[in-house]
Design a protein around this nucleic acid. Structure first.
Lengths: 194, 194
DNA sequence: GTCTATATAGGGATAGAC
DNA sequence: GTCTATCCCTATATAGAC
């Protein structure tokens, strides 16, 4: 672990995280080796271990950025069956998904690796909040008390958000603003049956 | 639970594929070791190599099931800008996605591993058709000649199909028939702007 | 802060007995 | 068809010099 007071003169720590985010997202966490990352940076593997205690620790640092987003996101309302609550939630999710797509893709692409971060005791030591954003969102779609059609529509609206991941290459010529506007339009339609 | 010794010895190959499909889907291809699969089956690693030439060969066998589906699917129409063509395509995709969800999840979860199957010369030797279903579908959403809103709606409708993957755990109490009916309803709405 | 060298573990894959 | 034993390779991680 690197002391919080450590000065990152060359910005190497950040450069490691940048390369790791890129690789973990494109190739996957398990498929990406530290040798690979070190070579792209032009340093040795051992140098990585000066900045991070382990490979998992690199993923953790990226995951903590996500946690920071959740903090910025604020607490979720706790009225899972209210349509307006869900619509507002979705609205905020889209904003985050567009502005931090790489980070979302990372988590979407490596669910197990991220999961294991929560299994261990690593997160507590870094002051993790209790429940993740994902778990909170699931409560809005998993409750059997809510009408199945409503739940399917909510899940599909989530699928719409991650569709930029599925069809990223196919939509790369559409800029973020246009895409966000279209996405908000379509998702809001999805939620209201005709 | 199936007693190991009671089953015909020739059924081992299928049992390997069943376990592999389960593990590759849940944990990912690269993260799943052959030792793990062998242990669950109560056989040795070497036994696996009697039935398959390599780990990749196991994935290939599962991938060929997907190819069989594509054959059943039939040729795609080649009019990417016609709304009716896309609607018909989507309709058939939903049917396949529901009936063979495990297989779809496998491919959705391990895009790179499947990709490498096509890079090598393995597929030609097994009589692969030229272009995959996925590549053909992409032509319907990637062409810049088509209106961006139309393309976003199409990609979102694809996202709706894979939403059962995203929210599978949350919707497990809804049976396949209900889910399929709701999915067809919602996706058809997505394609037509209000 | 970065290096070389090395320890250790686990992966895929093969040989040969039965 | 399945086993045990083994090989080779690559990965994470550590030790200690500079």
């Amino acid at each position: 672990m690197v002391p919080a007071s450590a000065v990152d003169a060359g910005g190497t720590r950040e450069r490691i995280l940048d390369v790791a985010l890129e690789r973990f997202t494109r190739k996957g966490y398990a498929e990406t080796s530290l040798r690979e990352i070190a070579e792209e940076l032009g340093v040795s593997k051992a140098a990585l271990y000066y900045h991070f205690a382990s490979k998992q620790d690199i993923l953790l640092a990226l995951h903590l950025r996500m946690h920071a987003l959740e903090a910025e996101f604020g607490p979720l309302a706790s009225a899972p069956d209210d349509p307006g609550t869900w619509a507002a939630l979705l609205d905020r999710l889209i904003g985050i998904a567009i502005r931090h797509r790489r980070l979302i893709e990372l988590h979407f692409r490596n669910p197990d690796a991220v999961q294991q971060l929560h299994s261990g005791e690593m997160l507590e030591r870094h002051g993790s909040s209790g429940e993740g954003l994902e778990a909170q969102v699931l409560r809005f779609v998993a409750s059997p008390a809510i009408d199945p059609e409503v739940r399917v529509r909510r899940v599909v609206s989530l699928g719409a958000i991650v569709s930029f991941y599925v069809g990223a290459a196919a939509l790369s010529d559409i800029d973020d603003e246009d895409f966000e506007r279209l996405l908000r339009k379509v998702t809001s339609e999805i939620l209201v049956p005709r």
